[in-house]
Design a protein around this nucleic acid. Sequence first.
DNA 1: GTTCGATTTAAACGCATGTTTGAATCTTAG
DNA 2: CTAAGATTCAAACATGCGTTTAAATCGAAC
Lengths: 219, 219
Amino acid sequence: MTEPTTCDRILDAAEALFAEQGFHPASLRQITQAAGVNLAAVHYHFGSKQALLLAVFRRRLDALNQARLARLEEALAKADGARLEDVLDAFVYPALAFSRGSDADGHRFMQLLMRAFADRDEDLHAAISSEYAFVMRRFADAIAQTLPGRDPELLRRQLDFTVGALTYTMAESSLADTRSIASDLVRFAAAGLRGSGQRAASHDSTVQTGARSTLETSS
Amino acid sequence: MTEPTTCDRILDAAEALFAEQGFHPASLRQITQAAGVNLAAVHYHFGSKQALLLAVFRRRLDALNQARLARLEEALAKADGARLEDVLDAFVYPALAFSRGSDADGHRFMQLLMRAFADRDEDLHAAISSEYAFVMRRFADAIAQTLPGRDPELLRRQLDFTVGALTYTMAESSLADTRSIASDLVRFAAAGLRGSGQRAASHDSTVQTGARSTLETSS
DNA sequence: GTTCGATTTAAACGCATGTTTGAATCTTAG
DNA sequence: CTAAGATTCAAACATGCGTTTAAATCGAAC
């Protein structure tokens, strides 16, 4: 049995503790102790605590997004074209299958990912975006293909809703149910996307009931 | 013009800085300096930094949830019964109207709220839950009423999807678009709820395409 | 076996943090 | 006016942090 390298042990411990406690509360002394390495090893191998966090993200996001893209290609390659559900599944599923890695590390990473979205940290956001932007565009295109004639901006927004539902659900829910959650979420998002094809041209009474007095400055 | 009290000035400054930087990075020295009060005032009035955070949450969540419930009652009081869209609107809308408070503080609070959901902090979770539990039950009941015969557990899960989409979107998006976002989100969630009425009895090929090899232990 | 670079180690540095203290200053009531 | 309580204030305390340093140890190449 080959021992994992010092770098990997640090990454594993950091991922667990960052997810458990958050970036700032998790100290390098905790992390290095959990990893069984010297305190200074972090700065030797990564340079700083912030750089360690970025390394943690890169390691997982690469794998996650590659799995998503592979599954998307599979769906797009179908003879009769991809169905909306297949595309959504390619996006949602790997995120959940992820939660079955050794020791439920994937689930912890999802918590960490939600933390990252909530964070205002610019470097972190930039790092994640650079990994995500391409993937998101691919999925947006694929979905647009299954829903022709849709307003692109609305579609992007609806995709944000889906990402929000996924991220929130993953961070919040327990491990056991991930399989059925994935199925429910794909169904929910597909119906949401299909069902709200166009925006209401005029503000219909459905949504705006009584809203004017609250939102608009009474002019 | 009556000067705001020391307590309020601390709460305002803390809310802004917690939302902007997060709980741990925002220091009491920053907060008290921004509020123009002495450092020790925090401990005199609130007891600790953690207690200050809880106070920040309580002040806003009370107002938000009361606005939600009022709007829900309004919808339920309608002659021909509440429509699903009206109920969803009562949940989504106040969260967005909130973002129009003085100085866009509401928007910052939404970022803070998302941070709180991402946090593993037990005290904070307990405090939020105690404010939220009753409200969520009311809305779940109201939605169940508009969708008779729905599996309660599925409904709760779909409500989680909606909360996730709302929270994520609120924290991520800019201020200007909040109004149309609310409308889009209500539409999306309503379609998602209506469209996925029952779970697939057997695993149909729609969602599970190629999933078995990944998720299930090949038995 | 020696040398040289890569890695690990223990110790310390400088600093910012949350919190506490005790005196000074307001506020209010008798 | 004065006494008492509530509030503010400047200063210090103890602690833990990320980071740096320089010596010790390891591993391969000559």
